[in-house]
Amino acid sequence: MIKYLLKRIGYIILSLFLIITVTFILMKAAPGGPFASERASTPAIEAQMNEAYGFNDPIHEQYFSYLINAFTFDFGPSFKYVGQEVTEIIGRSFPYSLILGLEAIFIAISIGVLLGVIAAVKHNKFGDYLAMVIAVLGISVPSFIMAAILQYIFAIYLQVLPIARFESFAHTILPAAALATTPLAFIARLMRSSMLDVLNRDYIKTAKSKGLSERVVTYKHALRNAILPVVSYLGPLVVSILTGSFIIEKIFGIPGLGSEFVVSVTNRDYTVIMGTTVFFSVLLLVSILIVDLIYGLIDPRINVTSKEGNK
Protein backbone atom coordinates (compact mmCIF):
# COMPACT_ATOMS: atom_id res chain seq x y z
CA MET A 1 0.00 0.00 0.00
CA ILE A 2 2.72 2.47 1.00
CA LYS A 3 4.75 1.46 -2.02
CA TYR A 4 1.72 2.10 -4.21
CA LEU A 5 1.14 5.53 -2.67
CA LEU A 6 4.79 6.51 -3.11
CA LYS A 7 4.62 5.44 -6.74
CA ARG A 8 1.50 7.49 -7.30
CA ILE A 9 3.02 10.53 -5.59
CA GLY A 10 6.02 10.14 -7.87
CA TYR A 11 3.73 10.25 -10.88
CA ILE A 12 2.01 13.31 -9.47
CA ILE A 13 5.32 15.16 -9.22
CA LEU A 14 6.20 14.15 -12.76
CA SER A 15 2.83 15.38 -14.06
CA LEU A 16 3.22 18.63 -12.17
CA PHE A 17 6.60 19.18 -13.76
CA LEU A 18 5.11 18.72 -17.22
CA ILE A 19 2.18 21.00 -16.44
CA ILE A 20 4.47 23.76 -15.16
CA THR A 21 6.69 23.49 -18.21
CA VAL A 22 3.80 23.66 -20.67
CA THR A 23 2.22 26.57 -18.80
CA PHE A 24 5.51 28.43 -18.87
CA ILE A 25 5.93 27.93 -22.61
CA LEU A 26 2.36 28.97 -23.35
CA MET A 27 2.67 32.00 -21.12
CA LYS A 28 5.82 33.12 -22.85
CA ALA A 29 4.46 32.38 -26.31
CA ALA A 30 1.45 34.64 -25.82
CA PRO A 31 2.20 38.21 -26.91
CA GLY A 32 2.05 41.06 -24.44
CA GLY A 33 3.26 41.30 -20.90
CA PRO A 34 2.11 42.30 -17.43
CA PHE A 35 2.79 45.98 -18.07
CA ALA A 36 1.32 46.23 -21.54
CA SER A 37 -2.08 47.46 -20.47
CA GLU A 38 -0.77 50.25 -18.30
CA ARG A 39 -0.49 53.83 -19.31
CA ALA A 40 2.15 54.38 -21.87
CA SER A 41 5.35 54.83 -20.00
CA THR A 42 8.66 55.90 -21.34
CA PRO A 43 10.83 53.15 -22.78
CA ALA A 44 13.33 53.80 -20.08
CA ILE A 45 10.83 53.03 -17.31
CA GLU A 46 9.60 49.94 -19.11
CA ALA A 47 13.09 48.64 -19.54
CA GLN A 48 13.75 49.25 -15.89
CA MET A 49 10.63 47.36 -14.84
CA ASN A 50 11.49 44.43 -17.10
CA GLU A 51 14.94 44.39 -15.61
CA ALA A 52 13.59 44.55 -12.06
CA TYR A 53 11.19 41.61 -12.58
CA GLY A 54 13.79 39.56 -14.39
CA PHE A 55 12.20 39.57 -17.85
CA ASN A 56 15.50 40.38 -19.46
CA ASP A 57 17.18 37.25 -18.18
CA PRO A 58 17.79 34.42 -20.65
CA ILE A 59 14.68 32.28 -21.07
CA HIS A 60 16.14 29.17 -19.44
CA GLU A 61 17.07 31.13 -16.32
CA GLN A 62 13.54 32.43 -16.06
CA TYR A 63 12.28 28.89 -16.50
CA PHE A 64 14.46 27.51 -13.72
CA SER A 65 13.53 30.24 -11.31
CA TYR A 66 9.87 29.49 -12.05
CA LEU A 67 10.45 25.83 -11.48
CA ILE A 68 12.06 26.46 -8.12
CA ASN A 69 9.26 28.84 -7.18
CA ALA A 70 6.66 26.27 -8.09
CA PHE A 71 8.18 23.46 -6.06
CA THR A 72 8.72 25.62 -3.01
CA PHE A 73 5.20 26.98 -3.48
CA ASP A 74 6.54 30.49 -3.24
CA PHE A 75 5.44 32.39 -6.31
CA GLY A 76 6.47 35.81 -5.20
CA PRO A 77 4.40 38.97 -5.43
CA SER A 78 1.62 39.63 -7.88
CA PHE A 79 2.55 41.91 -10.76
CA LYS A 80 -0.81 43.56 -10.70
CA TYR A 81 -1.76 44.00 -7.10
CA VAL A 82 1.01 45.83 -5.42
CA GLY A 83 2.26 44.29 -2.23
CA GLN A 84 0.25 41.04 -2.44
CA GLU A 85 1.84 37.62 -2.44
CA VAL A 86 0.37 35.00 -4.75
CA THR A 87 -0.04 32.56 -1.87
CA GLU A 88 -1.97 35.26 -0.03
CA ILE A 89 -4.33 35.71 -2.96
CA ILE A 90 -4.99 31.98 -3.13
CA GLY A 91 -5.33 31.69 0.63
CA ARG A 92 -7.85 34.53 0.66
CA SER A 93 -10.06 33.47 -2.21
CA PHE A 94 -9.93 29.67 -2.06
CA PRO A 95 -12.02 29.26 1.14
CA TYR A 96 -15.00 30.86 -0.63
CA SER A 97 -14.68 28.50 -3.55
CA LEU A 98 -14.12 25.57 -1.20
CA ILE A 99 -17.27 26.11 0.84
CA LEU A 100 -19.36 26.77 -2.24
CA GLY A 101 -17.84 23.81 -4.02
CA LEU A 102 -18.36 21.32 -1.20
CA GLU A 103 -22.00 22.35 -0.95
CA ALA A 104 -22.45 22.01 -4.69
CA ILE A 105 -20.77 18.60 -4.75
CA PHE A 106 -22.96 17.40 -1.92
CA ILE A 107 -26.11 18.57 -3.73
CA ALA A 108 -24.99 17.10 -7.06
CA ILE A 109 -24.10 13.68 -5.69
CA SER A 110 -27.01 13.18 -3.34
CA ILE A 111 -29.77 14.41 -5.63
CA GLY A 112 -28.10 13.11 -8.80
CA VAL A 113 -27.69 9.58 -7.48
CA LEU A 114 -31.20 9.59 -6.06
CA LEU A 115 -32.74 10.75 -9.35
CA GLY A 116 -30.73 8.17 -11.29
CA VAL A 117 -31.80 5.32 -9.03
CA ILE A 118 -35.44 6.38 -9.15
CA ALA A 119 -35.29 6.58 -12.93
CA ALA A 120 -33.76 3.11 -13.21
CA VAL A 121 -36.11 1.43 -10.76
CA LYS A 122 -39.15 3.06 -12.37
CA HIS A 123 -37.78 2.35 -15.83
CA ASN A 124 -40.15 3.61 -18.55
CA LYS A 125 -42.65 4.83 -15.99
CA PHE A 126 -43.56 8.30 -14.80
CA GLY A 127 -40.70 8.58 -12.28
CA ASP A 128 -38.18 7.76 -15.01
CA TYR A 129 -39.54 10.37 -17.41
CA LEU A 130 -39.70 13.03 -14.70
CA ALA A 131 -36.14 12.38 -13.55
CA MET A 132 -34.84 12.41 -17.10
CA VAL A 133 -36.66 15.65 -17.98
CA ILE A 134 -34.97 17.24 -14.97
CA ALA A 135 -31.64 15.80 -16.09
CA VAL A 136 -31.95 17.01 -19.68
CA LEU A 137 -32.94 20.47 -18.47
CA GLY A 138 -30.00 20.49 -16.09
CA ILE A 139 -27.55 19.58 -18.80
CA SER A 140 -28.90 21.90 -21.46
CA VAL A 141 -29.56 25.01 -19.37
CA PRO A 142 -26.24 26.83 -18.89
CA SER A 143 -25.30 27.63 -15.31
CA PHE A 144 -25.48 31.40 -15.77
CA ILE A 145 -29.08 31.17 -16.93
CA MET A 146 -29.82 28.81 -14.06
CA ALA A 147 -28.22 31.33 -11.70
CA ALA A 148 -30.36 34.15 -13.04
CA ILE A 149 -33.52 32.04 -12.80
CA LEU A 150 -32.73 31.02 -9.23
CA GLN A 151 -31.98 34.63 -8.29
CA TYR A 152 -35.25 35.76 -9.79
CA ILE A 153 -37.38 33.09 -8.13
CA PHE A 154 -35.84 32.91 -4.67
CA ALA A 155 -34.36 36.36 -4.16
CA ILE A 156 -36.67 38.70 -6.04
CA TYR A 157 -40.00 36.94 -6.36
CA LEU A 158 -40.17 34.91 -3.13
CA GLN A 159 -37.56 37.01 -1.29
CA VAL A 160 -36.47 34.08 0.87
CA LEU A 161 -32.76 34.06 0.06
CA PRO A 162 -30.20 36.82 -0.41
CA ILE A 163 -29.46 37.63 -4.02
CA ALA A 164 -25.67 37.91 -3.90
CA ARG A 165 -22.50 38.32 -1.83
CA PHE A 166 -21.08 35.88 0.64
CA GLU A 167 -21.93 36.62 4.23
CA SER A 168 -23.82 33.72 5.74
CA PHE A 169 -24.91 30.16 4.96
CA ALA A 170 -28.10 31.45 3.35
CA HIS A 171 -25.93 33.36 0.89
CA THR A 172 -24.31 30.16 -0.31
CA ILE A 173 -27.47 28.25 -1.20
CA LEU A 174 -28.27 29.86 -4.53
CA PRO A 175 -24.75 29.87 -5.98
CA ALA A 176 -24.18 26.30 -4.79
CA ALA A 177 -27.42 25.18 -6.42
CA ALA A 178 -26.53 26.93 -9.67
CA LEU A 179 -23.08 25.40 -9.59
CA ALA A 180 -24.51 21.93 -8.92
CA THR A 181 -27.08 21.86 -11.71
CA THR A 182 -25.00 20.51 -14.57
CA PRO A 183 -23.04 17.90 -12.61
CA LEU A 184 -26.25 16.85 -10.88
CA ALA A 185 -27.93 16.20 -14.21
CA PHE A 186 -24.88 14.43 -15.50
CA ILE A 187 -24.64 12.18 -12.45
CA ALA A 188 -28.35 11.38 -12.69
CA ARG A 189 -27.97 10.20 -16.28
CA LEU A 190 -24.79 8.28 -15.52
CA MET A 191 -26.40 6.64 -12.51
CA ARG A 192 -29.52 5.71 -14.43
CA SER A 193 -27.73 3.95 -17.25
CA SER A 194 -25.33 2.13 -15.00
CA MET A 195 -28.14 1.12 -12.64
CA LEU A 196 -30.21 -0.20 -15.54
CA ASP A 197 -27.24 -2.23 -16.65
CA VAL A 198 -26.59 -3.63 -13.17
CA LEU A 199 -30.25 -4.46 -12.53
CA ASN A 200 -30.13 -6.83 -15.50
CA ARG A 201 -27.08 -8.69 -14.24
CA ASP A 202 -27.26 -12.30 -13.15
CA TYR A 203 -26.27 -11.60 -9.58
CA ILE A 204 -29.35 -9.43 -9.15
CA LYS A 205 -31.40 -12.46 -10.14
CA THR A 206 -29.43 -14.50 -7.60
CA ALA A 207 -30.15 -11.92 -4.92
CA LYS A 208 -33.85 -12.03 -5.77
CA SER A 209 -33.85 -15.82 -5.76
CA LYS A 210 -32.62 -15.69 -2.16
CA GLY A 211 -35.89 -14.02 -1.25
CA LEU A 212 -34.43 -10.59 -0.55
CA SER A 213 -36.84 -7.71 -0.83
CA GLU A 214 -36.78 -5.31 -3.75
CA ARG A 215 -35.32 -2.61 -1.51
CA VAL A 216 -32.43 -4.72 -0.26
CA VAL A 217 -31.70 -5.90 -3.80
CA THR A 218 -31.67 -2.35 -5.13
CA TYR A 219 -29.71 -0.63 -2.40
CA LYS A 220 -27.42 -3.40 -1.15
CA HIS A 221 -26.66 -5.31 -4.31
CA ALA A 222 -27.24 -2.97 -7.22
CA LEU A 223 -26.26 0.46 -5.91
CA ARG A 224 -22.73 -0.42 -4.87
CA ASN A 225 -21.97 -1.90 -8.26
CA ALA A 226 -23.74 0.83 -10.18
CA ILE A 227 -22.05 3.74 -8.45
CA LEU A 228 -18.58 2.97 -9.84
CA PRO A 229 -18.91 5.11 -13.01
CA VAL A 230 -20.12 8.01 -10.87
CA VAL A 231 -17.09 7.66 -8.60
CA SER A 232 -14.70 7.82 -11.52
CA TYR A 233 -16.43 10.97 -12.75
CA LEU A 234 -16.00 12.54 -9.31
CA GLY A 235 -12.25 13.21 -9.62
CA PRO A 236 -12.36 15.86 -12.33
CA LEU A 237 -15.77 17.05 -11.10
CA VAL A 238 -14.55 17.81 -7.60
CA VAL A 239 -11.67 19.84 -8.96
CA SER A 240 -13.67 21.81 -11.48
CA ILE A 241 -16.18 22.68 -8.80
CA LEU A 242 -13.69 23.34 -5.99
CA THR A 243 -11.59 25.68 -8.06
CA GLY A 244 -14.60 27.84 -8.48
CA SER A 245 -16.60 29.00 -11.40
CA PHE A 246 -15.74 32.39 -12.83
CA ILE A 247 -19.28 32.92 -14.09
CA ILE A 248 -21.11 31.93 -10.94
CA GLU A 249 -18.72 33.92 -8.77
CA LYS A 250 -19.19 36.98 -10.97
CA ILE A 251 -23.00 36.70 -10.93
CA PHE A 252 -23.21 36.28 -7.18
CA GLY A 253 -20.42 38.71 -6.38
CA ILE A 254 -18.24 36.18 -4.59
CA PRO A 255 -14.49 36.84 -4.37
CA GLY A 256 -13.52 33.24 -5.14
CA LEU A 257 -10.57 31.62 -6.80
CA GLY A 258 -12.30 31.19 -10.16
CA SER A 259 -12.39 34.91 -10.84
CA GLU A 260 -8.80 35.36 -9.62
CA PHE A 261 -7.66 32.81 -12.14
CA VAL A 262 -9.43 34.33 -15.12
CA VAL A 263 -8.46 37.88 -14.18
CA SER A 264 -4.83 36.88 -13.76
CA VAL A 265 -4.76 35.48 -17.30
CA THR A 266 -6.15 38.64 -18.86
CA ASN A 267 -3.72 40.71 -16.80
CA ARG A 268 -0.71 38.58 -17.80
CA ASP A 269 -0.05 38.41 -14.09
CA TYR A 270 2.56 35.72 -14.56
CA THR A 271 3.10 34.80 -10.95
CA VAL A 272 -0.62 34.49 -10.21
CA ILE A 273 -1.20 32.40 -13.34
CA MET A 274 1.59 30.11 -12.32
CA GLY A 275 0.39 29.93 -8.73
CA THR A 276 -3.20 29.13 -9.54
CA THR A 277 -2.25 26.63 -12.22
CA VAL A 278 0.01 24.71 -9.89
CA PHE A 279 -2.62 24.86 -7.18
CA PHE A 280 -5.35 23.53 -9.53
CA SER A 281 -3.07 20.80 -10.79
CA VAL A 282 -2.17 19.60 -7.32
CA LEU A 283 -5.86 19.54 -6.43
CA LEU A 284 -6.73 17.58 -9.56
CA LEU A 285 -3.95 15.04 -9.20
CA VAL A 286 -4.62 14.46 -5.52
CA SER A 287 -8.35 14.09 -5.99
CA ILE A 288 -7.78 11.60 -8.81
CA LEU A 289 -5.57 9.63 -6.44
CA ILE A 290 -8.28 9.73 -3.78
CA VAL A 291 -10.90 8.60 -6.30
CA ASP A 292 -8.71 5.65 -7.24
CA LEU A 293 -8.38 4.69 -3.60
CA ILE A 294 -12.15 4.95 -3.09
CA TYR A 295 -12.63 2.84 -6.21
CA GLY A 296 -10.55 0.11 -4.62
CA LEU A 297 -12.66 0.28 -1.48
CA ILE A 298 -15.95 -0.09 -3.37
CA ASP A 299 -14.87 -2.73 -5.84
CA PRO A 300 -12.65 -5.43 -4.33
CA ARG A 301 -11.58 -6.55 -7.81
CA ILE A 302 -9.63 -3.32 -8.14
CA ASN A 303 -7.05 -4.02 -5.52
CA VAL A 304 -4.56 -1.18 -5.52
CA THR A 305 -1.89 -3.13 -3.73
CA SER A 306 -2.02 -6.20 -5.97
CA LYS A 307 -0.48 -4.16 -8.77
CA GLU A 308 2.80 -4.68 -6.98
CA GLY A 309 2.69 -8.24 -8.22
CA ASN A 310 2.33 -10.21 -5.00
CA LYS A 311 -1.07 -11.68 -5.91
Binding site: T206, S209, K210, N225
Partner: peptide, 20 residues
Amino acid sequence: RGKEISMIFQDPMTSLNPTM
Protein backbone atom coordinates in the same frame (compact mmCIF):
# COMPACT_ATOMS: atom_id res chain seq x y z
CA ARG B 1 -37.75 -17.84 -2.54
CA GLY B 2 -34.54 -19.08 -1.04
CA LYS B 3 -36.34 -20.74 1.86
CA GLU B 4 -38.66 -23.27 0.22
CA ILE B 5 -37.52 -23.07 -3.39
CA SER B 6 -34.03 -22.00 -4.43
CA MET B 7 -32.36 -21.62 -7.73
CA ILE B 8 -28.88 -21.89 -9.16
CA PHE B 9 -27.98 -20.37 -12.46
CA GLN B 10 -26.03 -21.19 -15.55
CA ASP B 11 -23.03 -18.92 -15.34
CA PRO B 12 -21.26 -18.91 -11.96
CA MET B 13 -18.93 -16.20 -13.27
CA THR B 14 -21.69 -13.64 -13.34
CA SER B 15 -24.23 -14.89 -10.83
CA LEU B 16 -22.37 -13.83 -7.70
CA ASN B 17 -22.18 -10.20 -6.61
CA PRO B 18 -18.58 -9.08 -7.25
CA THR B 19 -18.56 -6.45 -4.50
CA MET B 20 -19.68 -8.68 -1.65
